[in-house]
Design a protein around this nucleic acid. Structure first.
Lengths: 200, 200
DNA sequence: CCCTAGAAACCGACCGGTCGGTATGTCCCT
DNA sequence: AGGGACATACCGACCGGTCGGTTTCTAGGG
């Protein structure tokens, strides 16, 4: 007998189909009928597990953000020196982004399609992520480990801009592996934040 | 008597309404009926000037890209030293991005909704922009003006990622003016590309 | 300067089809 | 026998696009 599944196989298949189609065609461009055909379930099954089409979008966001928040807390909790923490964080972000490329595409493009109640829940998570990282940068700037060439707020916004745009150009069969991209992004960001430049 | 208008006022109003609504609700989330109501014209007028709803999207992209390509060519054509060229270019990009914030939002989010023929035309423009900038970076790297901490290709992708993400967080009433943001972005990018770091 | 005739600009009712969501039925496990 | 897990049939609203018709503009002959 299998373990009691906390989420049913049907539920998982529906979410996987939804994220694939939303990434390819957009939220409004995908009909519920297409989702149930891709998942090989019926419409009744979908509305048994989810309140609405919008609920699917929320679940996609929620699981992605939960994973990213957990990664952030874990890495910052290790107490590494700032430069190494940044390298670890970017490596982890590249892993997540390339592994969940459809989820990130949907996250970036279809955020504004969430209804107001679900939007607030997601924005709270995103804000916590943003503030946590910004405070980490501020702290390293005060300690002299990072330059203040740009404010911590701007550095945070620019970094997430770069990361979130990756699904637009990254291709799994492309010339660069995720770890190589992570190394270049880390090198780029750490060069920009190198305190030695300011002291010249 | 007014000059002969090359584009009619009706045509302009339709495009302005379309870009506003596409930015707010997405392409598929906006009906043609909503566009004609916002523009205070009739459906007949819209289909007199445009082939289809998709044609509206193409016109929005085409005018934005034409402007950005012209700006890029003009600035690189001035023959400024690389660091000053980057500053001028980012200042211009910030101007365009903050002035055409709805256009850029649509550009980033709804690109994949273009039909195949129009998509190819837009991709050709975008590729030219990308290649032109990458070759500029490569050339400055060979001359020793920019570091090779990240490849010219990656620098190009990361910069446009940062820029294109700006409409997600920039607010006209926000604390920072476009010129202040441009200064921070320039400082950040030029710090990352400073050749002095490599020589230590 | 006016009249006319064709072209361009514009109107809005209408169409076939698709949408997200629901109501109700059936099966099977406990 | 009762309830969770689905299946099926169906609804009214709305979609992008069309089309025959009307108004407005403009060029040129008298």
């Amino acid at each position: 007998m299998v373990e009691h599944a906390r989420v049913s196989a049907v539920e998982t298949r529906i979410l996987a189909a939804a994220v694939r189609l939303f990434a390819e065609q957009g939220f409004d461009g995908t009909s519920v009928q297409e989702i149930v055909e891709e998942a090989e379930v019926t419409k009744g099954a979908l509305y048994h597990y989810f309140d609405s089409k919008n609920d699917l979008l929320f679940e996609i966001y929620h699981s992605l953000l939960s994973r990213q928040l957990a990664d952030l807390d874990r890495i910052l909790g290790e107490g590494l020196p700032p430069r190494e923490a940044v390298q670890a964080l970017i490596a982890e972000l590249l892993d997540t982004t390339t592994e969940c490329i459809d989820e990130v595409k949907v996250y970036v493009r279809e955020m504004h399609k969430l209804d107001q109640a679900r939007m607030h829940a997601i924005k709270a998570d995103r804000r916590r992520y943003h503030v946590t990282f910004r405070e980490f940068v501020e702290s390293a700037q005060r300690a002299g480990d990072f330059s203040t060439v740009a404010s911590a707020e701007t550095v945070t916004l620019l970094l997430f801009g770069m990361i979130n745009d990756i699904p637009q150009w990254y291709r799994p069969q492309g010339p660069k592996a995720p770890s190589e991209i992570a190394a270049e992004v880390s090198a780029f960001l750490l060069a920009a934040l190198d305190p030695a430049l300011q002291l010249r």
